[in-house]
Amino acid sequence: MKYKSVFDIIGPVMIGPSSSHTAGAARIGRVARSLFGREPKWAKIFLYESFAKTYRGHGTDVAIVGGLLDFDTDDERIIEALNIAKERNMNIEFIEEAANVDHPNTARILMGDEDGELELVGISIGGGKIEITELNGFELKLSGHHPAILVVHDDRYGAIAAVSNILSKHEINIGHMEVSRKEKGKMALMTIEVDQNIDPSIIDEISQLPNITKVARVVD
């Protein structure tokens, strides 16, 4: 079930004309920014189907960039997001893709700086709700509406249990968890949505575990 209340259908408090094309787009951008952990120096934003056809008129372009600047859906600065990005020397490129995808409101964001890159695929499913479906080649399902951590790790026995034990020790309840891997015994990705924001000290503790490569968090 995608919607839990009438407010999910009406949509969020937002800047812009469309909960799907503006609020949802901003949330996709903001989750990408959160996972990257800092403001990117550049971003290539690939838009598909409905997003590609209407992104200028519906404000999808300014919304995604606003998200990359860490603006929430009701932040009035979103209106000037493209100008603000230019002032901050963030190089933005929009690419209209002709390929068919599973959902018409799909965006793929490739972004980075001198220290690294991140690639993310997100869809806006209506009412400002989103799903992140791919991260750096890993398939996942992340709503972006709950605090979460993403743990890149070696596909080894005990890695999942070790992370779960730390969350349990700190009385953090797991709402949703899944694991994705590209190949058995290689790299894997844990996606864990929780009921409360996780303190950075806990992220550091998880990072010190054996077989853990990287830990990123999405705050509420």
Rank of each mutant, 00 (worst) to 15 (best):
E39V: 09
N165W: 05
P147V: 02
A159H: 01
R108C: 06
I64Q: 06
I130N: 04
K184I: 14
R77S: 06
F71A: 05
N100Q: 12
L68M: 11
D115I: 08
A85T: 10
K86Q: 13
D113Q: 11
R156G: 00
I92M: 03
G116C: 12
A63H: 02
G185V: 11
E80K: 15
A99H: 07
E39H: 12
G126I: 13
A107Y: 00
V101H: 05
E119M: 12
I123A: 07
L118M: 13
E76N: 12
V179H: 12
G57F: 01
L69I: 00
E178L: 14
L69C: 05
A98H: 08
G158F: 05
V65Y: 04
G127C: 07
A148Y: 03
G144A: 08
T73Y: 02
E117A: 04
E76V: 09
R77A: 01
V152R: 15
V62G: 00
D75L: 03
I125W: 04
S124T: 07
K141G: 06
G128F: 09
E80A: 11
D75G: 03
K86L: 12
R156V: 10
N91Q: 14
K141N: 14
L110V: 15
I172Y: 09
H145Y: 11
A148S: 15
I149C: 06
N105T: 05
K182E: 12
Y157N: 07
D72T: 14
I78H: 01
G127M: 05
R181G: 03
E171T: 10
E171L: 11
L150K: 02
H170R: 15
I95D: 10
I64H: 03
L150N: 02
E93L: 12
E87D: 15
I92Q: 01
D102I: 09
